[in-house]
Design a protein around this nucleic acid. Structure first.
Lengths: 116, 116
DNA sequence: AAACTACATTCTTATATAGCGATTCAAAAG
DNA sequence: CTTTTGAATCGCTATATAAGAATGTAGTTT
């Protein structure tokens, strides 16, 4: 029997459920405020209150966004006294954002060059 | 208990504009139907009509989703006679989806193991 | 015990968009 | 020209959700 090449690009079509799960994850990254929270957490752990202050958004809003990120497995939380400390729980988040930023930089520079 | 890694990447906070641009890109990937279209295109070029047939969605809907993917720079199109051929214009799309799928597999297997 | 603190939750409003049908547009054929 | 075909666009409805205000809640202090 032929063994499947590891580099074989022939990918099977994804099921509806898989598509929904993947879309759910990407949706967690599809809001500027959530990206801002992740961006702040990339500098280190923060309490919810600190994120409220530094994000400039309201407390209820930050709490809800953090819930979305937590359900997506991207942010973790641990309670310590009255405060809740948040941290990035999935290093993939950094990679994804890094890739996207890099790609955007390339495109913008390309467009800028086209205008010069 | 691991000591905090010295690999702290110390990234500067992103601007509002950057966050909006990044969110816009992720939003393009945040819908199951668009992921399905991308998944079909991963197998090779398709006309819009073929995508309508294979996706099982309506023509207007597919057309609008393709417009979103095109504006996000993820899908390219070339007209040939009456037909419009679509293709993946940014290999990053494959990487992003691959990463996400891999991550989901890991989590699901982990959870499955936790239940056994 | 009461009062306070840090978050979470609920409720509401405003906005965005997925999906559908109908229409329009553009290229090709008759 | 007219018709046909492939795709884009418009109008519409239903649904999702971001954001703020008010309230609830659990842990802390006094």
């Amino acid at each position: 029997m032929a063994k499947r090449k590891a580099t074989a690009p022939a990918k099977p079509p994804l099921t509806d459920m898989a598509l929904n799960l993947i879309a759910l994850r990407f949706r967690a990254l599809a809001e500027p405020m959530r990206l801002r929270l992740l961006n702040l957490l990339m500098q280190g752990e923060r309490t919810v209150g600190q994120l409220v202050t530094e994000s400039g958004s309201g407390q209820a809003n930050v709490s809800k966004h953090l819930a979305v990120l937590r359900e997506a497995g991207m942010v973790g939380m641990r309670k310590e006294g009255l405060s809740t400390w948040c941290f990035i729980a999935d290093p993939m988040v950094n990679e994804l954002c890094e890739m996207m930023c890099q790609r955007l930089r390339e495109e913008m520079e390309s467009k800028a060059k086209a205008l010069s």
